[in-house]
Design a protein around this nucleic acid. Structure first.
Length: 276
DNA sequence: CGGCAAACCTGCGAGC
DNA sequence: TGCTCGCAGGTTTGCC
């Protein structure tokens, strides 16, 4: 599910109910997600006050007053839900439950369990393996065409694959890679290193635009993603190419139909006429 | 080292 | 109706 806009939506939903609150209880309903929960996971969190909720790429970073950081990744199907009143019956995939000092219940649900949670001292965060190799954030501030072009220059792979490479730019996933390339008029099959100059500028702007609009829409709800409030995101209604194989291209209209191909194991949607 | 397929796991829709 | 197959928003691993 979650690419940068969805994780940002989760971050914005969790911040008001977590920041300044104490984690009174942490309940693990199983011993692992993608990885086992680390030893002492619950003990490190319980009784601690949350000082901030942040996002880096697709990772949520919840910092505690002990200067420990809870690192959470939603994988493909993870979601957080907030319950202010009496919570509904537990779902089989409600794997982690947090109860705050305001008596708010926060549940982490993840059917596929590709997500994970870990703890790391704040001082060691920069060396955390999954964080240390991440490329720059693409929004806030926006990545420049120059920086993007420089980072794509060393890639021999197609530009679509390069956008999914979190060490080139952080936070872009399959949907927004397809959408950004369409907006920029760049073929997903084009060699990444050839996206330079004006093309790199266009792509950088497209990435920023699509991500900013998706965040405003609360992300894209295809299947699992929900805002922590329970509301659906609605950016999926704005997809130009993703999931639209066989439909007319929204730009050249009657001409080409949206094509679907597979690149490094992931579906790519594009218009072979508008994207070069 | 770079690039790609496979692996991790569950659920759902399409097709028979 | 019921089964099997393929595919899904991510990341790491291992194999050329």
């Amino acid at each position: 599910m979650p690419e940068l806009p969805e994780v940002e939506t989760v971050k914005r939903g969790l911040a008001p109910v977590l920041e300044g609150r104490v984690l009174e209880r942490v309940v693990l309903n199983r011993e692992n997600l993608r990885f086992p929960f680390p030893d002492g996971f619950g003990q490190a969190l319980m009784g601690r006050r949350v000082t901030s909720v942040d996002r880096r790429a697709k990772f949520l970073l919840i910092t505690l007053d002990s200067d420990m950081v809870l690192i959470a990744h939603l994988g493909m199907s993870g979601s957080f839900r907030i319950f202010h009143g009496p919570p509904p019956a537990a779902d089989p995939h409600d794997h982690v439950v947090f109860l705050t000092s305001e008596n708010v219940e926060i549940r982490y649900n993840d059917p596929r369990r590709f997500g994970f949670m870990d703890i790391c001292p704040k001082a060691g965060l920069a060396d955390y393996p999954m964080l240390k190799k991440l490329g720059p954030e693409p929004v806030n501030p926006a990545i420049s065409g120059k920086v993007l072009g420089d980072r794509l220059r060393r890639k021999g792979s197609p530009v679509k694959a390069a956008l999914l490479d979190q060490t080139i730019v952080a936070g872009i996933g399959n949907i927004y890679a397809c959408e950004a390339l369409f907006m920029a008029g760049i073929s997903p099959r084009r060699k990444a290193a050839t996206v330079q100059g004006g093309r790199a500028e266009k792509l950088a702007h497209a990435i920023e635009n699509v991500l900013v609009f998706a965040i405003k829409a609360g992300g894209s709800s295809l299947k699992d993603h929900r805002q922590p409030s329970g509301e659906l995101g609605y950016f999926q209604h704005s997809f130009q190419v993703y999931g639209r194989a066989g439909e007319p291209c929204p730009r050249c209209g009657g001409g080409m139909l949206i094509q679907q191909i597979v690149q490094s194991g992931r579906s790519t949607f594009f218009c072979s006429s508008c994207q070069r």
